[in-house]
Design a protein around this nucleic acid. Structure first.
Lengths: 173, 173
DNA sequence: TTGGAATGTCAACGAAGCTGACATAAACTG
DNA sequence: CAGTTTATGTCAGCTTCGTTGACATTCCAA
């Protein structure tokens, strides 16, 4: 049926013009170029301090989920613990992240941003929000709603469920 | 004024709710997770052949602009020639890309996909289109229009101009 | 008390960015 | 024609950030 719809679209069905291969291709290219713009400002700030996107991602999600465990972060970021550990090591050594031994389960490490880490997070996220806000404002509320809808459907459903479970757990606490 | 609007939004102005910091943050996270989904399928295919995203990007744009020069590709992809050269070298050696000496300007190299390269491109782009098409269909045409609008505004305007100039030049020829 | 889970660390590797330097050929320019 | 610029390729070396494998530590739980 997937295929059937695609063929109807290719044949010129008015309602399905947005599903033609050419339209999809334009969307793919737009996604590629937009992601570049999306990361450009934080990338510049990170480069000044000798950090990369991996550090940004870790900082971002520690900010969102203060006290989260390494394992949660691994699931969200989708990298190996060795890779994350290198990044966290650096952030901890540089005094941006604090790692506290878990209270209930002392095997776990609960991660927090330090004052310095909070400040750096603000610098990064303000730069990125500024760019996204400008795009949002230029596009308007209806476009933004559509943008969010498509993105939601493009995610891996399992990752999305996992992430929302984290959010719920945090908001309940 | 940027700041003024943001404050109105934070204060609860109905028309500007989509510009609150929290909404922007959700958009940023959605973009991060969606990009992962967006690249997941091609990444799997590439990994089987020992290629990476860099090869995908090169193949994609050579497919879009057959006969394009190395310099054009450098501008579009935003990497250094050394980095691109490593990728192109491999694709040429593996018989996926052909490099022909330019006709008018013999310093230039015009790049084309071979039969084998075309086949691989189809495999990659069909996997990616399938995912994007599913998201598009689930979201609906209005959402897709909004999605595209926001992405357009998120791109670097200069890159976008450059890219569209290439498209025009190709379509005129 | 033993097995397994969570975490961290060490070593090694690879992909793919980067800079800098230099070579070559072709095109352009004075 | 001589000299400069442009397009490309290549070498060496560095960095980030991903990978796998092996192994130690800590600690919960059966």
């Amino acid at each position: 049926m997937n295929e059937r719809l695609r063929k109807r679209a290719d044949a010129g069905d008015e309602d399905l013009l947005f599903l033609t291969d050419d339209q999809i291709r334009r969307g793919i290219e737009a996604m590629f170029f937009a992601y570049r713009g999306f990361t450009a400002d934080p990338d510049r700030i990170l480069a000044k301090s000798g950090y990369g996107r991996a550090h940004h991602r870790a900082i971002h999600f520690i900010k969102r989920f203060p006290g989260t465990t390494v394992n949660n972060l691994l699931d969200i970021l989708g990298v190996t613990k060795q890779s994350l550990n290198r990044v966290l090591r650096r952030l901890i050594d540089d005094g941006l992240v604090e790692s506290r031994v878990g209270e209930q389960d002392r095997r776990q490490r609960n991660l927090f941003l330090t004052e310095k880490g909070e400040a750096f997070e603000r610098e990064l996220s303000e730069a990125q929000r500024k760019r996204v806000r400008a795009a949002y404002r230029a596009a308007g509320p209806e476009a933004v709603a559509g943008f969010r809808t498509v993105l939601e459907h493009m995610m891996d459903p399992e990752l999305r469920r996992h992430y929302e479970a984290l959010r719920r757990r945090r908001d309940e606490a």
